[in-house]
Amino acid sequence: MRKILGMMVVLVVVTACGQRPHKPVESGASAVVVPDIVTYPRFGDADPHEWESRAPQSYPVHGIDISRWQGDIDWRTAKDSGVSFAFIKATEGGDVADPKFDEHRRGAQRAGVPWGAYHYYYFCRPAEEQARWFIQHVPKGAPLPHVLDLEWTPRSKTCTRRPDPREIWREARVFMNMLEAHYGRRPIIYTTVDFWKDSDIGQLARTEFWLRSVAGNPRKVYPGAYWTFWQYTGTGLIPGISGEVDINVFRGSPEAWAHWMAGSG
């Protein structure tokens, strides 16, 4: 993760629902505030897993990733239940835009839920084209960095290409560099176990990772990987959201979360 040198920061982290406030971390005069964060939420799950090693519930900061399939969301209820961040689908390929993206991001903003957008990548279009498509649909000003979703697409009706790791790395760099130049912060890469193994994407420099693992802690499923976010279920149940939803954790403490949100984690 990146550090901002010479920046003086005071962290103020407030917890909701009667949870104990965390002590501020003081190193100077400016302030980063994460308001009303509910730590260690206990969400439901339509298909719960019996965790053998460190369970996701042992991490304090939880959030969701969503798309059109979640429909309408009561964002204030979701936030009050423990949703501290949201990654929202914006685009895929070079010609598909999620029709609920603007509604979801505005709802998150009104409720004070930090959000970022994600792009579902297809290996049948140039990275430049896909980055331009994303930039066309996602405004500046998101509190979180955006996400490049890299996974195989065997069920796609239009693109099932599986390029070699060199091409994947090259295209990922192009996409990420374009978004970093436009938005001012480098995107995260989201990926799955099989894609991680086949592409060796974990060796890509200057990259933070969001890893999917619904049957084991990432330290077991992705040996040696350093991750920022962990998607631990695709069948979560959260107040304010109808039906099942993906749930994720941030790797660190609430204080680390505030640092990371500010780009200094």
Score class of each variant (00 low, 15 high):
residue 169 W to I: 01
residue 169 W to P: 00
residue 169 W to V: 07
residue 169 W to Y: 03
residue 169 W to D: 00
residue 169 W to S: 02
residue 170 R to V: 00
residue 170 R to P: 00
residue 170 R to G: 04
residue 171 E to L: 02
residue 171 E to W: 01
residue 171 E to K: 09
residue 172 A to D: 03
residue 172 A to F: 06
residue 172 A to Y: 03
residue 173 R to V: 15
residue 173 R to D: 07
residue 173 R to F: 09
residue 174 V to R: 15
residue 174 V to E: 08
residue 174 V to T: 15
residue 175 F to M: 12
residue 175 F to V: 10
residue 175 F to I: 10
residue 176 M to L: 05
residue 176 M to D: 04
residue 176 M to A: 09
residue 176 M to K: 13
residue 177 N to D: 15
residue 177 N to M: 10
residue 177 N to T: 13
residue 177 N to W: 02
residue 177 N to H: 11
residue 177 N to G: 14
residue 177 N to V: 02
residue 178 M to C: 10
residue 178 M to R: 15
residue 178 M to A: 14
residue 178 M to S: 10
residue 179 L to N: 07
residue 179 L to S: 07
residue 179 L to I: 06
residue 179 L to M: 08
residue 180 E to A: 12
residue 180 E to I: 04
residue 181 A to C: 03
residue 182 H to R: 11
residue 182 H to K: 07
residue 182 H to Y: 14
residue 183 Y to A: 10
residue 183 Y to H: 12
residue 183 Y to I: 11
residue 183 Y to K: 12
residue 184 G to R: 13
residue 184 G to V: 13
residue 184 G to T: 13
residue 184 G to M: 12
residue 185 R to Q: 14
residue 185 R to F: 11
residue 186 R to P: 02
residue 187 P to E: 04
residue 187 P to R: 02
residue 188 I to D: 00
residue 189 I to V: 15
residue 189 I to A: 02
residue 189 I to L: 04
residue 190 Y to V: 06
residue 190 Y to S: 05
residue 190 Y to P: 09
residue 190 Y to C: 06
residue 191 T to G: 06
residue 191 T to N: 08
residue 191 T to F: 03
residue 191 T to P: 08
residue 191 T to S: 13
residue 191 T to D: 03
residue 191 T to Y: 05
residue 192 T to K: 11
residue 192 T to H: 04
residue 192 T to N: 07
residue 194 D to Y: 08
residue 194 D to A: 09
residue 194 D to G: 03
residue 194 D to V: 06
residue 194 D to F: 04
residue 195 F to W: 14
residue 195 F to M: 07
residue 195 F to D: 07
residue 195 F to H: 07
residue 196 W to T: 04
residue 196 W to P: 07
residue 198 D to R: 15
residue 198 D to W: 09
